[in-house]
Amino acid sequence: MRVVWCWVLAGLVALTGTSCARSTAGEAVAATGAPKPAAPITVATMHVTPPNGTRYTPSTPNGTFDGCLATDTTACVVRLLDLRTPGGPYNAPNTSRPYGWYTGADAPLCVTRTLVPGSTATGSSLLKAGLAPIGSKKADYSQWQVTCQDTSQNGRLRMWWLPMSKILVVEYNSGSPLDAQVDQMLAAATFD
């Protein structure tokens, strides 16, 4: 009987330690378990407050996660890029190009919830194009269906492009519950 109680007590200590140490997206967790509001970020002249439960990575050594909002389960759900900065030529986003949401010259890699980067993209079809707000500005907006070498990585993405400000926002794996939060974040954006 004493051995059983020791096991129960050890299990409770382990569970308590695990739940007390758990945090959301690297943020402190309040006593209620809710994450602290995300800190505002600035990309070029745009100021946004990321959705709760996300964290922003302005740059990484290899550039793979530059400008990414990540969650606990996805390394890059939204990319916010300042294309004014030097770093070589880029292709301006354009709905007339096959990978119009991608600024590189080669075929892009797929971005999925589990793999970043994933397999090479094999196609990109424009689903919708028009204008959408980012704060007080109107962005070129488009939705794309992306196909990948590994078909399990196929998905949709959404893109907002401010050509005068040279700010690009790309949401990978569109259709998730995060869509409404991304829309709210961009609608509340302010500019210098």
Rank of each mutant, 00 (worst) to 15 (best):
P108W: 01
C110T: 12
S59Y: 14
S59E: 13
G88N: 12
A75N: 13
N52G: 12
R55N: 15
A107K: 04
T60V: 10
R55M: 08
A92D: 01
V111N: 13
C68S: 13
P58F: 05
G87Q: 09
C68F: 11
W101R: 02
N94R: 06
N94C: 01
P89H: 12
N62V: 01
A75S: 15
Y102Q: 04
Y56K: 11
T73F: 12
P51T: 14
T71M: 12
Y102M: 00
Y99R: 00
P98C: 11
T54N: 01
T112R: 02
G67Y: 01
C68W: 00
R84Y: 04
P61K: 12
R84H: 00
L109H: 14
L109K: 13
G88P: 04
N91D: 14
R84K: 15
T54P: 08
V111A: 10
N52V: 03
R97N: 12
N91S: 10
P108V: 11
R113L: 11
N94E: 05
C76L: 02
D66T: 12
V78M: 10
R97I: 08
L80S: 09
A105L: 13
T112V: 04
T103E: 03
R113E: 04
D72C: 00
R113P: 09
P108A: 06
T64C: 06
S96D: 15
G67F: 05
G100Q: 00
P98L: 08
G100F: 06
N62K: 10
G88V: 15
T57P: 02
S96A: 15
P93A: 14
Y56L: 07
T60P: 05
L83P: 09
D82F: 10
G63H: 15
V77H: 09
R79V: 03
R55I: 02
R55Y: 14
T73E: 15
A92L: 00
G104S: 03
W101E: 02
Y102I: 03
D82M: 14
R97Q: 11
T71Y: 08
T73W: 04
P61H: 12
T54V: 10
